[in-house]
């Protein structure tokens, strides 16, 4: 098995910019799926709109490219209708948490089994570099020429508060961890959120003088620590990586199956 068994080769080279972290996520996702030994027919990928959303077109799964922010809502219909399918929902930070914020909260609250991968590049890339809800205070963007005054979300805390039963974070630098966490998120029986810090050298990097793709990945290496690390106490600005939440709670589709079992009329 190789990566090429899981992609739609005819669409390569892909449309992402040189050094875009989304390709690294795609790369790790394929290895995660390969390691699980799943049939491609069992996997449905539902995406919204934006650079991140194009990932669904490149994988040889059932793929649905929907409308901006609503991927989780479409995915909820698919999963409720066919709970046996593995549903993966890759989203950008704006897609998941600005226009799609409400759906994100409620999918987490329901604890419906699906894997939400938030590819957080802190910018709207497809439209040319406007600030997103994850850009953070003082970031530069094409719609924040004087510096952003919006504060960013903490995706992990938000997901936990909303009820997600698996919450993790990693970066495109930590590719083994990335692949392992995607695998764990897919295996989790409930709503799982994986935030991946992914570089956008074209817009975020350029506007914020964060360097090229390798330099941005160096930052991920140097400015993140494993969750629970001592270093975080000394340097609170470090970003934690790893699994923040993993717990078992009743899963939505299984709960609904119980409702059906109890109330289904006997066939006469």
């Amino acid at each position: 098995m190789s990566v090429k068994d899981y992609i739609r080769e005819r669409f390569f080279p892909h449309m992402w910019c040189p050094g875009c972290g989304h390709g690294v996520v795609l790369n790790a996702m394929i290895r995660a799926v390969e390691s699980l030994g799943m049939s491609k027919n069992e996997i449905v990928m539902v995406s919204g709109i934006g650079c991140s959303a194009r990932i669904s077109g490149y994988v040889d799964f059932h793929s649905m490219h929907t409308i901006h922010g609503r991927a989780l809502a479409f995915a909820t219909g698919i999963k409720m209708s066919r709970p046996e399918l593995n549903v993966i929902v890759p989203m950008g930070d704006g897609d998941a948490l600005a226009i799609g914020g409400n759906h994100f909260l409620h999918a987490a609250r329901r604890n419906i089994e699906m894997t939400a991968i938030v590819m957080n590049n802190r910018i709207y890339g497809m439209t040319g570099g406007q600030f997103s809800p994850l850009s953070g205070y003082a970031a530069a963007a094409s719609t924040a020429p004087y510096g952003n005054i919006d504060h960013g979300f903490d995706i992990a805390k938000l997901s936990e508060a909303a009820g997600a039963t698996f919450v993790a974070r990693t970066t495109t630098y930590h590719v083994h961890e990335l692949s392992r966490l995607i695998r764990d998120a897919i295996l989790h029986e409930g709503f799982s959120v994986l935030e991946v810090l992914t570089q956008c050298p074209t817009y975020f990097g350029r506007y914020n003088r964060a360097g090229d793709a390798p330099e941005m990945m160096e930052t991920y290496k140097n400015r993140t620590v494993a969750v629970g690390s001592e270093k975080k106490n000394q340097d609170p600005d470090l970003i934690e990586r790893g699994v923040f939440v993993k717990k078992e709670l009743p899963e939505y589709c299984r709960e609904y199956e119980k409702v059906i079992e109890k109330n289904q009329q006997k066939q006469t």
Partner: peptide, 13 residues
């Protein structure tokens, strides 16, 4: 194989 895993273009094996 870190080059293969980190390649955003899936271009290296």
């Amino acid at each position: 194989r870190m080059c293969e895993y980190r390649c955003p273009d899936l271009a290296i094996e």
